[in-house]
Amino acid sequence: MVNSTTGNRKHFIYTLAATTLFISTYYLLLPVLPLYMQGMGGSKFKIGLIMGLFSASSLFLRPLAGQASDLKGPVKIMKWTILLYFITPFFYMTHSFVLVSIAQLFYGFTIGAFTISSATVITTSVPLEKVGQAIGIHSIALILAKGLAPTLGTLVHTVWGLYPLIAITVLFSFAALLVTWRLPEIKPASKPGDITFRQVLTYRMVWVCSLVLLSVTLTFGTIMTMLPLLALERNISQYSLFFTVNTLAVVATRLFTGRQDRLTQEALIAVSLLLIFLAVMLVSGSYSLITLIIAAIIYGLGYGAVYPALSTLVVLRTPSEIRGSAFGLFTAAFDIGVTLGSVWGGFSEYLGFKTIYFLASFSPVIGLICFVVFLHGENVWNKILMRNAAK
């Protein structure tokens, strides 16, 4: 286990359970919402824009949520975000694009803030040398929610419809709140005035890893938002198996990549980006379930390795007093990528699915080039920082 003390072990497990439950609430709805809005008469472009609002909300508010986690304590932020969530289900029960858009904005903030805070709890509950392993396990909880919940959501919606599915998301959130209430409050790492956004940006690894993550999640947003409609257009049944197979591949990968050192992590990031490129190319040309499943396996291997490796580099290269803010910036890049991917997916209305996925596949290649170039200049960057500090 990642910690030797019984108390911290219990807190670690509680955090994982709360994370899985609460993150699942949105991903239960994810594969259903595009079909629901299409039934309301929405075009592919409008659906892409509205789905992108979820990530756009997190994009602007995650850095603030990270700073709030440093100043108020991450457990307190976890509780507040779950309570705020309970406003959103009622908006999804309408047939209004405006209210569904508002729900996406609320949901984006609550999920984003909760993710940052729970990750901060995880990193503070284990010794520094085991942070990589802890992040890997925490990310498995996230992927279980993001991978298995869509399959369950599709099943519930098919059998019982939208309203029972929304009721299940409320039950999941209530369970997450009960578990979170068992966590002890964590003393804030900083005081007001101690943290500035400019200070976080001086840590080069934060924004380098953020840029690479953006290049990855652009493909994630494009796939997850438009996959149901691609499958419908190409007559691919049981497409939800993509989410399940992808999740299993991610979990298997992270069980073996949680304890790598920094040098191995950097090599792992490079290989992972190439795997993601290959997987998205396969989705572009997929006209059968077997091709989608192969793409899901390859994508899962790449995505499964790249996220914890990038997260670990961020944690190890930032001091504890700004770790929440650093994670806020890092995960904001996740949302930028998903937002761009969702909006880009909407252009399938004009370009077709084959073209948008083909072009999206080059995003991780660009990320790889940036990663290699920035790492190559790290010594120069460090010399500049040392020179400025000496003035």
Rank of each mutant, 00 (worst) to 15 (best):
S117M: 06
L213D: 02
G42R: 01
S118G: 08
A295L: 09
F109S: 01
I137N: 02
E266S: 07
Q199V: 02
W344P: 07
L33H: 09
T253V: 02
K191E: 11
V315W: 00
S272M: 06
I87S: 13
A270L: 11
A252H: 09
K79P: 00
V338I: 13
L59V: 06
L49S: 03
H376G: 13
I111F: 10
G73V: 03
V372P: 02
Y239D: 06
L255P: 00
E349G: 02
K44R: 12
L148N: 03
T6Q: 11
H138S: 02
T291I: 09
H95Y: 11
S363W: 05
G304L: 10
V206N: 09
E266N: 14
K130F: 12
Y85V: 02
F114Y: 13
N8Y: 11
S210H: 10
N379P: 02
S101A: 15
S363I: 12
T180C: 12
A326M: 05
K44W: 00
V98W: 14
I168L: 15
V343N: 05
G346Y: 09
S286K: 10
V121I: 15
L53K: 06
I143T: 11
T247D: 12
Y203F: 15
R259A: 15
M78Q: 12
I369L: 15
W160C: 03
A389K: 14
L340F: 15
R387W: 07
K187W: 00
R254I: 08
M281P: 00
I23D: 03
L211P: 03
T222K: 01
S24A: 11
G193M: 05
L142C: 08
I140P: 03
T20P: 00
I366Q: 06
V373D: 04
R262N: 12
V343S: 09
S342I: 07
A17F: 14
A296V: 09
S237C: 07
F358Y: 08
K44L: 15
H138P: 01
A167M: 14
D261C: 08
L329W: 05
A270F: 04
F330A: 02
K79N: 09
L177R: 10
S55I: 01
L201D: 06
L144P: 02
L273A: 10
T202Y: 10
L351N: 05
I137H: 01
G66Y: 02
L340N: 04
